[in-house]
Nucleic acid binder design. Structure first.
Lengths: 148, 148
DNA sequence: GTTTAATCTGGCATAAATTGGCATAGGATG
DNA sequence: CATCCTATGCCAATTTATGCCAGATTAAAC
């Protein structure tokens, strides 16, 4: 499972190293070296290809002209791009996605078990400071209610 | 399946490159290089020919006497035009369709699994910004309901 | 503490994709 | 039939993606 937070740099062509730990998980657990990256709220999320296909297949079964399904497709599927890992362990994040998440030079990758969140470093620190004690208390309660 | 969002430019004669990824899917999955493009709401949609035929067949089985069905179909079927991909990987979007979607110079193509949406860039960004938190939450619920 | 290995980053060279332009072909219109 | 408009094919310039090499940095091993 993906865990931990890493800060990396993006080249001006949009390439970033995927943290070695994440690559390892991707290969060992999913037998593959491709991520699918899409936009999500104020950041990007990356799924291992296999995990993504699972989602796609489920969504493909929904009625394709239902309003909520359309907006879902437009937003999440519309953003999704496969990003294979190259020989140096990097992926290329396309311009449209970089623009969406306001990623410029430095970013933060956060392991979230089955997926990875990718934030612009600036925005991440902003978000982190907002997500202060109150938020934390709330989340802790949820955890507690789950018996943890 | 089609996924990802691409911004492209239209020549003054109405030709646009189909993103390489989409061409690839079209050829590999449908063994064909022709799209059927039609009007839809505030944008256009493009289906690979085979997929379009599947829809046509389905439609043929629908109850013909229902007024709303008929007018929706008139709308959808009426606008449909075959757009073969040329040697440079481009299609020609006819004037009537361009006008319908207010496509001028720049457009956005959005992969939606079995079909592609084509938006005027301006209108797309309008739409995207409108699709704010509420919409997004709704989509996320779909995700949640799919166990994701 | 030094050596070794692995990871991350920047740069360059090549390949592929995208776009603009021009010339010709084909139809429609008067 | 001449003229106009649009469609189509093709070339060339530009931009973007990809592969690979090498230095810099970090972590691991001895």
């Amino acid at each position: 499972m993906f865990r931990g937070r890493y800060e990396h740099t993006v080249t001006d062509t949009g390439r970033v190293s995927v943290p070695a730990k994440f690559r390892e998980v991707c290969k060992d657990k999913y037998g593959d070296e491709t991520f699918v990256v899409t936009n999500f709220d104020r950041c990007l999320i990356a799924y291992p290809l296999k995990e993504w296909n699972r989602i796609e297949n489920k969504v493909a079964e929904l009625p394709q002209f239902r309003k909520d399904v359309i907006s879902f497709l437009r937003y999440l599927m519309g953003g999704a791009v496969d990003c294979p890992i190259d020989n140096q362990g990097r992926i290329l994040i396309p311009q449209t996605l970089r623009k969406h998440a306001k990623i410029n030079k430095e970013l933060v990758m956060i392991g979230m078990l089955t997926r990875i969140e990718i934030w612009s470093k600036e925005i991440w620190y902003e978000e982190e400071s907002k997500m202060a004690y109150e938020e934390f208390k709330k989340s802790s309660e949820i955890l507690a209610n789950q018996g943890l």
